[in-house]
């Protein structure tokens, strides 16, 4: 049974420290860190490949993922993100936060919120492929190993967010 009362979040400093240990663990065990965005990418290419195999394999970018001898889903990050999903599920359930809902600001219609979630997602999907990673693979992982490009990327993520924030203020009142 899911607990009826919602458990509080962890203190962010504690959560961050524990997250750092998980990341460090990945470095020590695997020799590389965490990632996320490439798995939606792989799934999307899988869908495209199922619909139009020839056209997908003819695309120079998709051809890195699909084609003769390539196993689209036999990839470390696919399993890692599967773990993220399960960990999120168990975490939400055990904290009483597993609930079908749409998170939105006060008075914001569901449709509008979903539309923005999709639009932002499209932008992120595009940007993550351009930058070869997202907040997980670049900012967090690359940040911890002091990759030059990852730190530039991280600063730009915050800059991009703050530049746009004033225009979306009413979404989060």
């Amino acid at each position: 049974m899911q607990p009826s009362a919602e458990r509080p979040y962890w203190n962010p400093y504690v959560a961050g420290f524990v997250l750092g240990l998980v990341l460090l663990g990945s470095f020590l065990v695997m020799g590389f860190g965490l990632g996320s965005s490439s798995v939606p990418t792989r799934l999307a290419i899988g869908v495209a490949h199922a619909i139009a195999p020839a056209a997908t394999e003819a695309n120079a970018y998709f051809a890195q993922y699909v084609g003769p001898g390539k196993k689209l889903l036999e990839d470390w990050l696919v399993f890692e993100v599967l773990g993220v999903f399960l960990g999120g599920l168990v975490g939400a359930y055990s904290a009483g936060r597993l609930k079908s809902e749409v998170i939105r600001g006060e008075g914001v219609p569901k449709g509008r919120r979903i539309a923005l979630a999709i639009a932002g997602g499209v932008l992120m999907g595009f940007a993550a492929r351009l930058a070869r990673g997202c907040t997980s693979g670049q900012a967090l992982t690359g940040g911890a190993v002091l990759s030059l490009g990852s730190w530039i990327f991280m600063m730009c993520v915050f800059a991009g967010g703050y530049l746009l924030a004033p225009f979306l203020r009413k979404e989060w009142r």
Binding site: L123, M124, F126, A127, A128, R132, F153, V157, A159, Y162
Partner: peptide, 12 residues
């Protein structure tokens, strides 16, 4: 990519 991902992060 960072600027666009930050913008997408803010929107979604």
């Amino acid at each position: 990519g960072g600027l666009l991902l930050g913008a997408g992060f803010m929107i979604s």
